[in-house]
């Protein structure tokens, strides 16, 4: 019923507008075309100026409303992200300046030079000097942006520091899984053809390097202040490890491992205090459309102090020992059994 009312109302509005429009044609015939045109011209010129003024006020108001909800007030959660925030500010300053100037000129000129009987348009067809100015100035500005931008880009995409913690991230429809290389600091080889329900990452357990690898689902723990290098895989379609708080993202591509690294600088606990949000968590969003549940492909990052991280790591058992308890000499079997349930893929 509500819908019908809405539709009826909509149709009514349209009919009214159409009638006004039709009437306006008769009016213009009565008043004379030229006069109507002049009137319309004045009204529209005035509106254009109004649009400029209210538009700029709107821009300011929008900023008031939403700036606090962006990620900037809380600052970048990674060292590298600071670089990006700085770039962003520079770019906003430059483009904002150009935006205000050009929009103001556009609408001001439109208003100022509206048609008037006593005005004659100026014949001004070209000026090489002006063209040169607005070729060179933007070119120089762009070069400045390119230089700063690329400096940040090379720093962020360059090789990870040697002492980074390596974590392998694997995306599949629709969840994230993580693998830590264990004590030998080497990730065991993988071969997608070995994938089974239990060994769902397709780890090649013939590779001794895999024996101490730790496999966890959904939640990733990393220590604060140490560079973390992600080696990113995908098992089916393209996903994307989106880390908005750290200002980074990188696609997960089947068949081509990708990588990104960053140095988290605020622990989850500190961030809860900083944002005043007791439920704050760092989230990994999938930023590349990956199927029907793309919007629910959520991962969690817990940034903690080194001690907490080490403690957490020590509590984990290797995937190898959980899958093949018989082959591992002495292990806490009870612990492993507990882990098996976690290792199995959680179907969403």
């Amino acid at each position: 019923m509500k819908e019908f009312l809405m539709i009826a109302l909509g149709v009514l509005v349209f009919v009214v507008i159409f009638q006004i429009a039709k009437a306006s044609e008769y009016v213009s015939v009565l008043k004379g075309e030229a006069k109507t045109r002049k009137q319309n011209n004045k009204i529209n010129a005035f509106f254009l100026l109004g649009f400029l003024v209210f538009g700029l006020i709107g821009v300011w108001y929008c900023n008031e409303l939403y700036y606090g909800k962006t990620l900037f007030p809380q600052g970048s959660a990674s060292v590298e992200g600071e670089e990006i925030d700085r770039m962003l500010l520079i770019t906003i300053a430059i483009t904002g300046f150009v935006f205000v100037i050009t929009q103001a000129l556009l609408f001001w000129f439109s208003f100022k030079y509206q048609e008037q009987d006593n005005r004659k348009a100026l014949y001004f067809a070209h000026s090489n000097k002006l063209e040169l100015i607005w070729t060179i100035v933007p070119a120089i500005t762009m070069m400045v942006l390119v230089v700063f931008g690329l400096k940040a880009w090379f720093k962020i995409t360059g090789d990870a520091p040697k002492d980074s913690i390596v974590v392998e991230v694997t995306g599949h429809q629709f969840a994230w899984e993580f693998r830590y290389p264990g004590a030998d600091k080497v990730l065991g080889k993988k071969n997608y053809k070995l994938t089974t329900a239990k060994n769902n990452l397709g780890v090649d357990f013939d590779d001794p390097a895999s024996h101490d690898d730790i496999h966890v689902n959904t939640t990733m723990h990393i220590p604060v202040g140490v560079p973390v290098k992600m080696v990113i895989h995908s098992q089916d379609v393209i996903h994307d490890v989106g880390l908005p708080h750290f200002r980074l993202k990188m696609d997960a591509v089947p068949g081509i491992p990708t990588t990104q690294w960053f140095t988290p600088k605020i622990t989850t606990a500190d961030m809860k205090k900083k944002t005043g949000n007791p439920d704050f968590t760092y989230e990994i969003s999938c930023d590349q459309l990956c199927g029907a549940n793309h919007f629910a492909m959520r991962g969690v990052i817990i940034v903690e102090t080194m001690e907490e991280y080490k403690k957490w790591l020590a509590e984990q058992t290797s995937e190898y020992s959980t899958l093949f308890p018989a082959k591992v000499p002495t292990q806490n079997v009870a612990d492993s059994a507990k882990l098996v349930t976690q290792v199995l893929p959680q179907k969403k």
């Binding site: 090789d159 990870a160 080497v186 990730l187 290098k229 080696v231 068949g255 081509i256 491992p257 990588t259």
Partner: peptide, 13 residues
């Protein structure tokens, strides 16, 4: 570049 990424597993090997 893909070849390098594949051969080194994203630089981890």
């Amino acid at each position: 570049a893909w070849k390098n990424l594949r051969n080194t597993d994203g630089g981890s090997r």
